[in-house]
Each structure stands twice: as C-alpha cells, then as structure tokens.
Nucleic acid binder design. Structure first.
Lengths: 198, 198
DNA sequence: CATCAAAGTAGAACGATGTTCTACAAAGGT
DNA sequence: ACCTTTGTAGAACATCGTTCTACTTTGATG
C-alpha cells in the first residue's frame, strides 16, 4: 500500500486520514495492539492527536479502519486461490489463510480478538469482513458445483471450514498449539476438512 | 465456588487472595475484561488495591489467576463427558465445550484472547490449560482405542478437534458466525469432525 | 499472654491514556 | 481576495497501573 509520508508542518486535509491509518498499522505491527495509542499513532503520522477525533470520531474508529484493512488483506489472500481443480483451490485457499495470519499476526489477533471486541463495527468494517467471508463461500461453491464437496449450502459449509482454519490459526498464534509441527498439523486439518465434507 | 465475602474492616490475610480472585471473576462477568481494573476489583472485594500487588505481583498476575479458573472450569466440562460409547462421549464432550463457552463468554474470551495475550502465563495457568487439553486427549484416546476414530497420536487428533470447536465457538461469541442457527451449525461441525477423523 | 515480624490499609503521587476544549494559523473553496 | 473549514498546539481532566510511605492490625512464636 502507498504510504503517505509526513512532510513536516501541517498535513494536508486530504492526507490526514490515510496518514493516520498507515501509521496505526505500523504501530500495531511494531508494538502490538496495546501499543496502539492515540498519541503513538499521531506521533508516528506526524499529525496532531486531535486528528484521530476529527477524522474517526475516536480511537475505536481508527482501530476499525485498521481492522477493515486487515479483512481486505484476508479477502485478497483468500481470493488469490484460483486453481482450476476444486480441491487444489480449497487447499491453496486454506494455506493462504494461514500464511496471511502468520505474516500479519498483530492484524489477525486484533481482527478476531481484542480489536474486534473493543470496537463498534463501522459499515466499512462489516462490509470488508463480509467480503472476506464471501471469497471463501465462492471457493466452496466452486467445489460443490464440481462434486468435490458434498451438496449443501455453500455458506454453511464455508462456515465450517472457516471455524476450523480460524481455530487452528488462532491457537497457533496464541502459542496454545500442542503439536510439534504446526504446519504439518494444519495440513492434517485441511485433509480432515476435505474428508469430513465430501 | 465458595465466595469469600468481605466482612468489613480488614480482610484476614489468608482470605485476601481468594477474595480478590472471586471479585475479579464477578467484575469480569459483569463488566467484561475492559472493566477489570485493579481499583474495581479491590472495591468489589472490599480489599485495599495494594492487595493485588502484594498477592499477585501485578494486575496481570490477578488476571492469570482468573484465567486459570476458567481453564479449570473448561477441564471439568470436558471431563464430564464419560459415556461408555466412544462416539457419544466425543459428542457430549464437544457439546459441553460449547456450553461452557456460551455460559461463560467473558471467561472464554479472556482465556483465548486479550486476557491470554496480555498476561505472562503463570505456572498455575499453564498447568490448568494443559490439564484441560489433556481431558480432551483422554477422550480421543478412548475413542481411538475402541476403533471409533482412526489410529493416530491422540494429541494430534485432539489438537485438530480443539482447533475446530475452538474456532466455531470463538466466531460465534464474536458475533462473526454467518449461519442462521449456530447450534445446528455446531452439530454439523461435530459430525464433520467424526467423518473426517474416522 | 507478651512480643515482634508480617501484612493489610489508607492515602498520596506519578506517568500514561482517552478525551474534550480553546485559540490560532493555515488550507481549501468560491 | 475573502471567508469558511480544518489542522495544530496546548491545556486540562478523569481514569488506570503502579510505586511508595506511614500506621495499624494480624499472625506466629516463645
């Protein structure tokens, strides 16, 4: 994503919002959700702290914007799985999911944990979350239509898949996994899903 | 659990710790993790705020004690599944897991989300978390030994099951489920697990 | 029972955080 | 060029986690 660098002095009106969200993401990645404070973000963006309130209403609004970006990233990763073979497509999709989470642990943790719990979802955030899920539903529908998964509502099947991969990734990120090789464990999970949904 | 009620004046030494943990649980249930502050807990327990630091080192130590109780509750719920039939045992176990989470949403959210992320796990907490997982491993082992699940390391199989049920319950509690009937969806998840692990 | 150490309490204080408000200057639009 | 909008700097406030001090009460031991 294109970063709007602060140029010193006063940030142009049209650049304040993006500067703040960019900065918030950097702070989140560097210091975690606990380090994401209004002052830290403002300093990172070389913007006045009041900018957060002027543009996002409050800190929660800023966090929601960051989470929305997270879900957009997740949607892109999910939708990138476009192999012709339906089973391959689902496997790639599942691997992309984990890859995204491992590459963006702070985003992922905030999206489904404290960040989400603390925020009142904005319309943008809900739309982005819906879109990310829809990308999975699309891939499930592709597989069901081609007989790779048993007939059924793609939304419900996608929810089952989502539950499982989300659970696996969440526990892994939290350091709560109990097996020696998380990657192998995740592959076993994907196989289990395919076996259980055929 | 037996609540140690404050009797006014000065709390006896031997009762301070339990009074604080009891109070912390009440505050967690009532006001969520965000409302669990040192002062709120101390007031709830009618104990001086310094008691938190004297007995638990800091606020995180107190939170860890609360999380440990959560895992103990989860272990009890898991271990309560003791039907003779291995499949029934697993199903009951799975249903107990969800029941526990739905009955104690604030505990569950803290145990696997912000509470866990913010705390340095104490030995007690790790032991309790291990014990809860072991209860699941035991049930998986029971089913594997009787041919109800395919042969394999019970720990790895338990991890797969845990990932799925944890994911399902977490998304449900976060209001991120996308299906109309979460209970039915959860039953479908359990069936999928059995199908995928036979 | 007396003595002394340990520990609970009250209170103050400090830095950090989210938020609100004010006054001024610069940007943006017409 | 003029006027409105908006970014900035700074102050202030309540709350929170934490540390510290002084005093009182409890708890343990002889």
């Amino acid at each position: 994503m294109t970063d709007v660098s602060a140029t010193g002095g006063r940030t142009p009106s049209r650049a304040v919002e993006q500067a703040l969200v960019d900065a918030a993401e950097r702070v989140l990645v560097r210091d975690g959700l606990g380090g994401l404070t209004v002052r830290a973000v403002a300093a990172e963006a070389a913007v006045a702290p009041m900018g957060v309130y002027n543009r996002f209403g409050n800190k929660d609004g800023l966090v929601a914007a960051v989470l929305a970006r997270g879900f957009e990233g997740l949607r892109v990763a999910t939708a990138a799985a476009d192999d012709a073979d339906p089973v391959d497509r689902l496997l790639i999709c599942g691997r992309n999911y984990r890859r995204f989470a491992l590459d963006h642990p702070q985003h992922y943790g905030a999206m489904f944990g404290a960040g989400w719990a603390a925020t009142v979802p904005t319309e943008e955030l809900v739309d982005r979350a819906d879109a990310a899920f829809q990308a999975l539903v699309d891939r499930v529908g592709y597989a069901v239509d081609r007989g790779a998964l048993r007939p059924g509502d793609p939304v419900e099947t996608a929810q089952l898949i989502w539950s499982s991969v989300h659970g696996a990734v969440s526990l892994e990120l939290a350091g709560l996994g109990r097996t020696a090789d998380p990657a192998a464990g995740y592959e076993a999970l994907l196989r289990m899903l395919l076996d259980g949904l055929r």
